[in-house]
Simulated scan of single mutants.
Amino acid sequence: MQSIEYIWHDLHSELRKFILNKVQDHDHAEDILQEVFLKLHLKIDQLKDSTKLTSWVYQITRNTIIDSYRSSKTAALPKNFEIAEDENYEDVFVSLSECINSKIQQLPKEERDLIFLTYFKNCSQKELSQKFGISYSGTKSRIQRTRQKLKDNVLDCENVIPNRAGTIPGFHSK
């Protein structure tokens, strides 16, 4: 089962964009995003099939947006708010997540472990240097090289759109 921390790292920025696209107010979008993650934390044990995690998260997000409009005495659900339109967006995101996950799986075991322990288990670089029996500066260098290697590999994903600086600000539908 996925941890909330993993879901946060994997999905929070895309969910923020998704919510902001629906509510058009940054503060309101942040409130909804926090509410979504609270619901995820409380309901994560109800997810029966972890392969449907992204779909499940987006369904909770859509429902939370709708609930937010319903509970507001001043805002009505926009007429152009269509739940169905989001399925394509979700499919693209699932495809992108699969690409990134496959790029991580293609890394050699030691590099995969570094990424996993650094980003998903929040191990410090000092902890990693002890675990792998290498110097602190060596650990920092390995993490940096592995991060760059993964970034270069992710840039090969069909959906990824790098900007001029070589960062990945977004993705597009195939």
Rank of each mutant, 00 (worst) to 15 (best):
residue 164 R to L: 08
residue 105 Q to V: 08
residue 95 S to N: 12
residue 130 Q to E: 10
residue 147 R to Y: 14
residue 129 S to V: 08
residue 92 V to K: 00
residue 100 I to H: 04
residue 144 Q to H: 13
residue 141 S to P: 03
residue 134 I to L: 05
residue 104 I to E: 03
residue 130 Q to M: 03
residue 137 S to D: 07
residue 151 K to E: 07
residue 89 Y to G: 10
residue 124 S to Q: 12
residue 122 N to Q: 14
residue 170 G to F: 13
residue 146 T to Y: 02
residue 149 K to Q: 09
residue 112 R to H: 04
residue 127 E to N: 05
residue 146 T to V: 10
residue 119 Y to C: 12
residue 164 R to K: 12
residue 143 I to E: 04
residue 106 Q to W: 00
residue 113 D to T: 10
residue 89 Y to D: 15
residue 164 R to M: 10
residue 158 E to F: 00
residue 151 K to L: 08
residue 136 Y to V: 01
residue 164 R to A: 14
residue 130 Q to T: 00
residue 131 K to R: 10
residue 169 P to F: 03
residue 126 K to Q: 13
residue 94 V to Y: 04
residue 160 V to W: 00
residue 140 K to Q: 11
residue 170 G to E: 14
residue 97 S to M: 08
residue 100 I to K: 13
residue 166 G to T: 05
residue 93 F to M: 01
residue 146 T to R: 06
residue 146 T to M: 11
residue 95 S to V: 02
residue 134 I to M: 09
residue 170 G to R: 14
residue 144 Q to L: 12
residue 132 F to H: 12
residue 124 S to P: 05
residue 128 L to V: 12
residue 88 N to D: 15
residue 164 R to H: 11
residue 106 Q to R: 01
residue 147 R to P: 07
residue 117 L to Q: 00
residue 152 D to T: 11
residue 124 S to Y: 05
residue 87 E to I: 15
residue 103 K to C: 08
residue 93 F to T: 02
residue 137 S to M: 00
residue 130 Q to V: 02
residue 158 E to I: 13
residue 101 N to S: 13
residue 107 L to V: 06
residue 141 S to G: 03
residue 163 N to D: 15
residue 129 S to I: 01
residue 86 D to C: 09
residue 120 F to M: 09
residue 98 E to D: 06
residue 89 Y to E: 15
residue 115 I to G: 07
residue 161 I to W: 00
residue 135 S to K: 09
residue 101 N to G: 06
residue 109 K to W: 03
residue 93 F to A: 03
residue 90 E to P: 06
residue 150 L to G: 02
residue 100 I to L: 06
residue 114 L to Q: 06
residue 148 Q to M: 03
residue 96 L to M: 05
residue 85 E to Q: 14
residue 119 Y to H: 10
residue 127 E to W: 07
residue 117 L to H: 00
residue 136 Y to M: 04
residue 147 R to S: 15
residue 162 P to D: 00
residue 123 C to K: 05
residue 117 L to F: 02
residue 143 I to C: 05
residue 163 N to P: 13
residue 95 S to K: 12
residue 131 K to W: 07
residue 113 D to K: 10
residue 169 P to E: 13
residue 108 P to V: 09
residue 135 S to T: 10
residue 159 N to Q: 13
residue 145 R to K: 15
residue 118 T to W: 12
residue 170 G to M: 15
residue 127 E to R: 07
residue 157 C to R: 12
residue 124 S to H: 07
residue 100 I to F: 05
residue 149 K to D: 07
residue 106 Q to E: 09
residue 116 F to S: 09
residue 143 I to G: 09
residue 136 Y to K: 11
residue 149 K to I: 03
residue 96 L to R: 11
residue 92 V to I: 08
residue 154 V to E: 04
residue 154 V to M: 05
residue 106 Q to A: 11
residue 164 R to S: 14
residue 115 I to N: 04
residue 95 S to T: 11
residue 114 L to I: 00
residue 142 R to P: 01
residue 149 K to A: 00
residue 156 D to N: 15
residue 114 L to N: 00
residue 141 S to F: 09
residue 139 T to Y: 04
residue 126 K to G: 02
residue 139 T to K: 04
residue 133 G to H: 06
residue 137 S to L: 01
residue 100 I to M: 07
residue 167 T to D: 14
residue 110 E to S: 05
